[in-house]
Design a binder for these strands. Sequence first.
DNA 1: TCGAATACATACTTTTTGGTTAGTACTTGT
DNA 2: ACAAGTACTAACCAAAAAGTATGTATTCGA
Lengths: 126, 126
Amino acid sequence: MYAIKESSTNQLNKNIAINKCPVTYTLSKIGGRWKALILYHLIGGTRRYGELKKALPAITEKMLIQSLKELEMDQLVHREVKPVVPPHVSYNLTEAGNALQPILMAMAAWGIEYANTEDPSGRCMI
Amino acid sequence: MYAIKESSTNQLNKNIAINKCPVTYTLSKIGGRWKALILYHLIGGTRRYGELKKALPAITEKMLIQSLKELEMDQLVHREVKPVVPPHVSYNLTEAGNALQPILMAMAAWGIEYANTEDPSGRCMI
DNA sequence: TCGAATACATACTTTTTGGTTAGTACTTGT
DNA sequence: ACAAGTACTAACCAAAAAGTATGTATTCGA
């Protein structure tokens, strides 16, 4: 027989880990399928929403805006809207976002060295 | 109305990302709730199963061995069994695992700088 | 007046990840 | 004979993450 769950230990454990450990904290900000990738693309400089979409053909629009929104809330990217029509929205790294660059580069380097990724340039054109 | 799903785009997308992008590849190896943390603890040197368990009180045994197993399969940690009883199993980083050290350290440093984690030493005693 | 272009929003479903509970094997100490 | 210690294993389930499909607003140019 199975006992009843009263609250999410999953969520609880997550928060414990995030609050007590900087490594987990960092991972919570750049983890998931797409965030690191988006950040990596923004290292190149400001990008419009549509440019990101083109650079990441495999991502769905939902995941792209969802990720961008979370990154914005976490103050890793900055969103700028030009009030024109059709809309013109661009994204670029904040200071904290920029500070992730060494991590992202190190991850790319490690991946290039220890994996057989198809594109050894590390440009991440997914 | 909803169309029928014939195969996992989720899995597909994941594999595309992993195969084409070294950043995503790296993340796929150290992502998730516990792996980075375990690796981080192994930086200190060889640890027994029970030592890891004690160091990470919040992790369940299932997640600990599951993570260790995956890390072993990915050749990031090496598992050594002494055929005694009670069993004596220890884990340590492989060369590839060791090469992750700069990334882990950089993640810890970023977390310490940009978060208010409870333990600013970065020791990750969860 | 209709379509194209841009940047989203929302409701819903599937897939994956993580947690719960209970049990195993083997030997030493009491 | 039985508990304790060590390192697991497996069946089951809940919660989170990711994907699908469809719809919105605005204005310009044809």
